[in-house]
Computed example of a mutant assay.
Amino acid sequence: MIWIISFDISDNKKRRRAVKVLEGYGHRTQFSVFECLVRRQQLRQIQTKLKKLIEPSDKVLYYPVCGKDALCRYADGNGEVYWPEVLHIVDG
């Protein structure tokens, strides 16, 4: 499943570490937004790693992108949509 993961981390060092974690699982679409094509277990790994980095005032948000919605993504302006090579939508 594709997950949109965004974060707001105030400490520069911790923010860089969060980016390193997320780059290992997905594609950076904006400074603090990543698209990650991961299994549930991998998502839990991401959550565990990021929870260790953040302070109570920081936040990390996780949004699932399911089924046909994954194919409806588009970008305006200078943006571009990332299409993982392994993305397969099965119409049941």
Rank of each mutant, 00 (worst) to 15 (best):
A18D: 00
Q47D: 11
V38D: 00
I89W: 09
S57K: 15
A75D: 03
F7Q: 03
G24K: 08
F31Y: 15
D91Y: 14
L87I: 04
V65I: 14
I9M: 05
G26T: 11
L53V: 06
Q42S: 07
K20A: 13
V33H: 01
A18Y: 04
V21Y: 01
W83C: 07
G67E: 06
R15Q: 05
R28Q: 09
R16F: 10
Y63A: 08
N78Y: 13
L50Q: 01
E85M: 10
P64R: 05
C66W: 15
L71A: 07
A18H: 03
F34R: 02
D58Y: 05
K59A: 11
Q42F: 07
G26E: 01
R40L: 12
Y63C: 11
T29H: 11
L53K: 05
Y82P: 03
K52S: 10
R17F: 04
K59M: 08
E85D: 14
V19A: 11
L71W: 07
I4T: 09
E23L: 14
L53A: 06
R15D: 00
G79P: 04
L53H: 04
E80M: 14
L71V: 05
I9P: 03
C36M: 00
F7D: 03
D11Y: 05
R28E: 02
V33E: 00
V19I: 13
V81D: 01
F7V: 04
V38C: 00
A18I: 06
V19Y: 03
